[in-house]
Design a protein around this nucleic acid. Sequence first.
DNA 1: TTTTGTGAATCGATTCACAGCG
DNA 2: CGCTGTGAATCGATTCACAAAA
Lengths: 209, 209
Amino acid sequence: MALAKTIPGASPRMVERLSLYRRVLQQTSAAGSHSTYSHELAAACRVSAVQVRRDLMTVGYSGSTKSGYEIKPLLVAMDTFLGNTGPVDVALVGVGHLGRAVLAFLCWRHPRFVPVAFDRDTRLTERVLDGVHCLPVEQMADTIQEQQIRIAVVCVPATEAQRVSEQLVAAGVRGILNFAPVTLFLPSYVFIENIDISVALEKVAFFTG
Amino acid sequence: MALAKTIPGASPRMVERLSLYRRVLQQTSAAGSHSTYSHELAAACRVSAVQVRRDLMTVGYSGSTKSGYEIKPLLVAMDTFLGNTGPVDVALVGVGHLGRAVLAFLCWRHPRFVPVAFDRDTRLTERVLDGVHCLPVEQMADTIQEQQIRIAVVCVPATEAQRVSEQLVAAGVRGILNFAPVTLFLPSYVFIENIDISVALEKVAFFTG
DNA sequence: TTTTGTGAATCGATTCACAGCG
DNA sequence: CGCTGTGAATCGATTCACAAAA
């Protein structure tokens, strides 16, 4: 039971799956369940049961052969592994439709991430959107430095993305979720995750045949 | 020179890269270049030069050792490989902030995909958004059948996604780009691509450390 | 019998290393 | 030389197969 093995290996793919597992487990837990089996979790996430067991092994949580995994402590173990201890401030740049969609996502589903929004458009700034204050970009660098924000979401047009990202990194940001359809060139110590809607749709079109 | 080899293997990952290559090549071409080297394309997409050569090999286009790859015919070869012959109709369900962001993406950058939008909210329907007509959901099934639409983008809330997807599939859709943070359960002949914003941000948070 | 935990095998994707060419 | 094309090697992720437990 719970023999942590201080594993170094955590691939991006695995972190994605863990994130999925957690969401499902939270729902299962809210629905009143107390424990679950690897094959149940697997079915709910469309992965194999072995995969689930491997991942949970990496997390360092062990189940029992009788009732599978206890959901509550498993969630704790996953949070510990993923480093989800406290709330995390997130800078969100660009409050157009996409930016507001992301804001809504964060505020509704993810109380863990606390966004601070920035935009160039003065009609948007100094307003409260989805319960989040929106500040003018001029205050971006200072705010990020003061609040020690390390994570940012880039929702600005493609033409602005590189410049904005450089400003973010200069202010102290070390991880970026980029929605702009461009390759960002930033120091290697910055983690970049790209979400490219055009590419994703292209993929669907290809494999739909 | 361009000895097509009728390759079966095209992994999702590779299709993503090809899509990236094409975007870069279009820009390079528009900037006046006539040819490019694998290492240039590689640098612009943050992949290795060998990877680029392998991918282009799969596409079936050969370059020359002197001037690398000719951009124009390479783009043609890629389009042929990806099956990008004519315009493709796409059903977009849910025209909230996210839906409108996707619409804007498609209309601005991707004249190839022709969207038809649907929403439950009658204040949105019968209006033109980003140059696209928005119809009430009641007309969704009929429109999809009539226009033979095979691809859809799901931008509805998580609670609606499963039901809406089933309707889409029943109407003839065979590929779905899903933004809702839920696992869709659909027949195996339906290709599903999930974009999960929460999961992506979770990943950034983890690897930012 | 069902389920977890896991070494070993497999599968797939990427890189290495080098041949061929201009 | 530098560049493309590619067999072979490598690396990583997933699955197989089975031991242990209840």
